Simulated scan of single mutants.
Amino acid sequence: MTNPVKLMPASSTDPEPEAATPRVRSGGVGWLWKKPATLLSTLFILLLITVAVLAPVISPFAPDAQNLMERLAPPSSKHWLGTDEYGRDALSRLIFGARVSLLAAVQAVSITLVLGLPLGIIAGYVGGWFDTVMNRVMDVLMSVPSLVLALTIVAVLGPGITEAMLAIGIVLTPRTFRVARASTLEVRNDTYIEAARAVGASTGRIIVRNILPNVTPPIILVSAVSLGTAVAAEASLSFLGLGVRPPTASWGSMLDNAASTMGIAPLHVWPPGIAIFLTVLAFTYLGEGMRAALIRTRSNGAKS
Results as ranks from 00 to 15, higher is better:
A224S: 14
K6F: 07
R136K: 15
V109E: 02
G27M: 04
A230S: 10
A249Q: 03
I111A: 04
G287M: 03
V187L: 06
S202C: 04
D139Q: 14
P22L: 03
I211L: 00
L40A: 14
A98I: 07
T176P: 00
W80Y: 13
P74W: 07
L151P: 02
A123D: 08
E70L: 15
G200C: 11
V280I: 06
P4H: 05
L278D: 02
G273Y: 00
A249F: 05
I168S: 11
A195G: 14
P247S: 06
I219F: 10
Y285G: 04
A293T: 09
E163G: 14
P36Q: 04
S299Q: 10
D89S: 06
L294P: 04
I121L: 13
P15W: 08
V140E: 12
G120Y: 05
S226C: 12
P36C: 04
V114Q: 13
I58F: 11
A108G: 02
L39R: 10
L237F: 07
F277V: 03
P246C: 11
L102S: 12
M134H: 11
S253F: 03
P75F: 09
P15Y: 10
I295R: 14
M138E: 08
G27D: 09
G228L: 05
R71F: 05
A259F: 12
S183I: 13
L157D: 02
G204F: 01
G200M: 08
I49K: 06
A292V: 11
L47N: 09
T297C: 00
Y285A: 12
G241A: 06
A282P: 05
P36L: 05
W31T: 00
T112S: 15
L157P: 02
I219S: 10
E18Y: 11
A155L: 08
V244A: 09
S223Y: 09
R136M: 12
G241S: 03
W33N: 01
V114H: 13
L113M: 15
L212W: 00
L147S: 00
T216N: 06
L81K: 06
S183R: 15
A235M: 09
T112Y: 06
G204L: 03
E85S: 14
P118W: 09
G243S: 03
V126P: 12
L115D: 14
W80N: 08
R188K: 15
A302S: 00
K6M: 11
H268D: 13
L103W: 15
T162K: 14
G30D: 05
D131W: 02
T38M: 12
S11C: 15
L221D: 10
I122P: 07
A108P: 01
A258D: 06
E163I: 07
L267I: 07
S26Y: 05
P22W: 01
S26D: 10
W31P: 00
A73C: 08
A150E: 00
V29N: 02
A105I: 06
A19P: 01
